[in-house]
Design a protein around this nucleic acid. Sequence first.
DNA 1: ACACCGATTTGATCGCGATCAAATCGGTAT
DNA 2: ATACCGATTTGATCGCGATCAAATCGGTGT
Lengths: 232, 232
Amino acid sequence: MTDSRSRCGECPTRRFCLARDLDASGLDRLSALLAPPIQLSRGDYLYRFGDRTSALHLVRSGAFKTLTVTADGEEHVTGFHFPGEIFGLTGFTTGVHEDTAMALDTSSVCRVHVDELPGLWGAGCDVAFLRLLGEKESAATRLRILLSEPRAASRLAVFLLQLAERQRRLGRTTDVLYLPVSRTDLANHLGMTLEALSRVISRLSRAGLLAMERMEVRVLRQAELETLAGSR
Amino acid sequence: MTDSRSRCGECPTRRFCLARDLDASGLDRLSALLAPPIQLSRGDYLYRFGDRTSALHLVRSGAFKTLTVTADGEEHVTGFHFPGEIFGLTGFTTGVHEDTAMALDTSSVCRVHVDELPGLWGAGCDVAFLRLLGEKESAATRLRILLSEPRAASRLAVFLLQLAERQRRLGRTTDVLYLPVSRTDLANHLGMTLEALSRVISRLSRAGLLAMERMEVRVLRQAELETLAGSR
DNA sequence: ACACCGATTTGATCGCGATCAAATCGGTAT
DNA sequence: ATACCGATTTGATCGCGATCAAATCGGTGT
């Protein structure tokens, strides 16, 4: 009897993750290769910079952040990761993680050990990997466009709209966005100071466009946010 | 007799591209699957936004730029691509290119048609694809860090140092960097106006840190550039 | 050599966000 | 309730880069 927690067929987010494109046989194969999911609490490290890259990670529930530290000691929050998303691939080039991953909330991740990955080749799984390549590249492009916005308000607007889009793909409502992220981390990720972010949030809240709390964001006037996102 | 131009064994950049990790049998397999390289002149489009994604592209010589156009009509130069580098993967998710690729100079690209890609699975090639995933993610991280620099001079410095690193991997000298890119495109890619870029270049040139011409950049004082790159 | 046109540089002004500083909020332990 | 500490907000100043404008450079064709 297979451990029920490692079986994709019963996973609530299986239709949105790596397994999305797999047929029944591919799903069985993936299920067999998956290591039991890891449970983490807020603030727990999943892996740290310099750890050996032992597996591919796939968010099952909760949320993670990844960050890198540059040579001069600056910390950069490279991304936030939600259910169905794969992260931490930087380590595949060198075999050692080039970033650090931390749980932002009570979370769990599925893993495929690198030694098992070749077992996924062929039969639908290859398609999944090509999609993964394309999606990672697309995500990088979107982030590039976001960071090119000169206005802080535009950057926040673009980020929130992209976040809403991600939640939409998960089949969740988009009026309340799940975002268990500190101001410091969010500002860092958006390429601005936390003071600048705080001011933007205050301004947009006062204007009634949105409402941000510790864990949740409410988009109150999507159309106006879209205008902000597009306006230079 | 195989068309000599499609055979990786004779390609001057084979040790730096997808084929890098392949053994002899993998190399033969790749060679057999490669479509004959395409030759392009400066300004030629390799593919455009909306074209069907028919192949994976690999720079053999010259240089390319990729760009996307956002909903509001803004153009974003998402990257410059040099020999040995693979680009245009965004199309693998939807089957349609989400960006446009143009030759910046007399160039040639190798291609693997998407229908042929599954023929690459297994035996060393899978490792190459995992590396590709990791490298793409790492490149995205580096770009993210670059664009987070608030100072225009820092962004340019980081870009040039990364460019030098890329050339170093190709076994070229790093005192003269090949960069057949207009000010407009470079400024766009670096997230600043061309006036700002022009001023920064003038300032750093006057200070004797570098010399930039249409096609070439000379890094005259690498140490000082590195200081600039690191300084906030 | 000349006119012409795009690319690049230089000039001047202004607004936004970085920076330094201080106040306020929120949660926790005592 | 109080003290305490990190997170967040608010305040004030200043510098850099966006913006608008104009000059100059460079290459092409005549």
